[in-house]
Structure formats: C-alpha cells, structure tokens
Simulated assay, not measured.
Amino acid sequence: MGHSLAVSCALFWNIFLFAITNVEANGWLSGHATFYGTNQDPATLGGACGYDSTIHAGFGVNTAAVSSTLFRGGEACGACYQVMCNYNTDPKWCLRGRSVTVSATNFCPPNNNGGWCNFPHQHFDMSMPAFLRIARQGNEGIVPVVYRRVSCKRRGGVRFTLKGQSSFNMVMISNVGGSGDVKAAWIRGSRMRRGTWLPMHRNWGANWQSSIDLRNQRLTFKLTLIDGRAIVFSNVVPSTWGFGQTFSSRNQF
C-alpha cells in the first residue's frame, strides 16, 4: 500500500509540474514578483492609482504595484490577477501549489537600469502578506511567477469618492467587480436634460474628472469596463453630497 501511495504521489507531482511548465498554453503568462518593504503598512499601497487606503477602497491587503507593461497608464487600476510562484523554476523559494489573487493598486516604476519593472517585464511588486502566500522571504525577494487575469470578486457595491471643488469634479472609482478595471466613465446630474451624459476623463489612476458644477444634484454614473461590460449606477450619490465623501452602490451590477 505504501508503494502504491508513493506512486500516486509521484504521478500527481509529475502532473503538477507538467501543468506549471505548460501554463502559457492555458491562459497563464510568465513574470516575476517582489514585495514591498517589510515595515510598510499594506493599506497604504494605493500610490499611482490614487486610492487613499486599499482597505477603504475595498481591496484589502492582497495588492500589487505592477510594471508599466501591465499598468497601461492607469487602466489596470482595480484589475485582478491570480499569481502563482513557479515552483518548477525555483523550488527553494516558491511554496508548492500556492496561488494568491491580487488587485492592481499601484505602479512599479522603471529605473531604466535593468530593473524588474522596466519595459517589457511583466512584474508584480506585491504587498508582503500577498507575497508570503506564494513564496518564502529570501533570494533577494525575487521569484519567478505565472499569472493570469481573473474576475474580481468584491464585497459590497462599487464605491465613488468625490473630490475636487466647485466646477472641478474628480471621482475616485473603486471596488469594481468583474474585470475590475474601468475603461470609460460618464456622469449625469439630476438637473441635466434626460438622456444627457457628460463624459469623464481619466485624471490619473482610478480618478476621473469632469468640469461642470454638479453640486446639489443627485449623481448617476455610467461605467464601461475593460471587458466591454457597461453599467449604470442611477442616483448613487444623493443631492446632499459633499467633497470628500464616499458613496457605494447597493450591489455590483
């Protein structure tokens, strides 16, 4: 019986190694991962996407800054990736068979000197809690990974944080499910003509702007996600809103 168990374990392990070796044929891509400083609060890693706190934005602590190839000028903000350390390539530092789903909340800038975040590298600079889900701390904190885009599973509704002043409106959009990343956004005030939408422009990261005074109006948003899905959030913001407040839809879509 012991021999049979050993053969079964060996067979399983060979199948697992074959799967890791051939992941790119099954929607997985190759890259590398590092981690943020050991003493850094993972909730603060909203950086280039403009999230004041990854907890407040709905993403938790499993987050990552991604290289320019993945960041796409901010389009990736909120996107979800399943990341697995490539044990077949680095069995010393990778945890066998472990994966973690991270949200892209920051930009890992290139140093133009052969750094891991330089173009065209596909790189994840992960929060330490996320990194330790798939790898041991060591080897200068650099491990080979395989990754793929996955649908974002969010708790609660989509969040709209209002910033700006008078006729300059900037809205941080976060906690978006589905593909997670917003391609286009529109806004409509309750006193605007029915059916009229004002296009918003990406200011930076997950922050979208418009240049019209919409104070004392109920606000409705329309979003188009990277996957092509279009969603309308009717009157998600009441007319009593003020700058600095966050409002959430009742559900995702």
Rank of each mutant, 00 (worst) to 15 (best):
S8K: 11
S8I: 09
L11N: 12
N14M: 12
F16P: 00
L17E: 04
N22H: 15
E24H: 08
L29A: 10
H32A: 14
T34Y: 01
Y36V: 05
I55C: 02
A64W: 01
T69R: 09
F71Y: 15
G73C: 02
G78E: 06
A79R: 13
Y81F: 15
Y81T: 10
L95A: 09
L95P: 06
G97F: 05
G97R: 09
A104G: 02
T105H: 00
N111C: 14
N112A: 14
C117N: 06
H123M: 07
M128S: 05
P129N: 03
A130V: 03
A130I: 04
I134L: 03
G138F: 08
N139D: 14
E140Y: 09
G141L: 01
R154I: 10
R155A: 10
G157K: 02
F160M: 01
L162P: 00
F168E: 08
N175A: 00
G177E: 01
G178H: 05
V182T: 14
A184W: 03
A185G: 11
R194Q: 11
W197F: 10
R202C: 06
N207Y: 02
W208S: 11
W208D: 09
Q209C: 06
T220R: 00
L223E: 01
I226M: 13
I231A: 12
N235C: 05
F243H: 04
G244E: 02
F247D: 07
S248M: 15
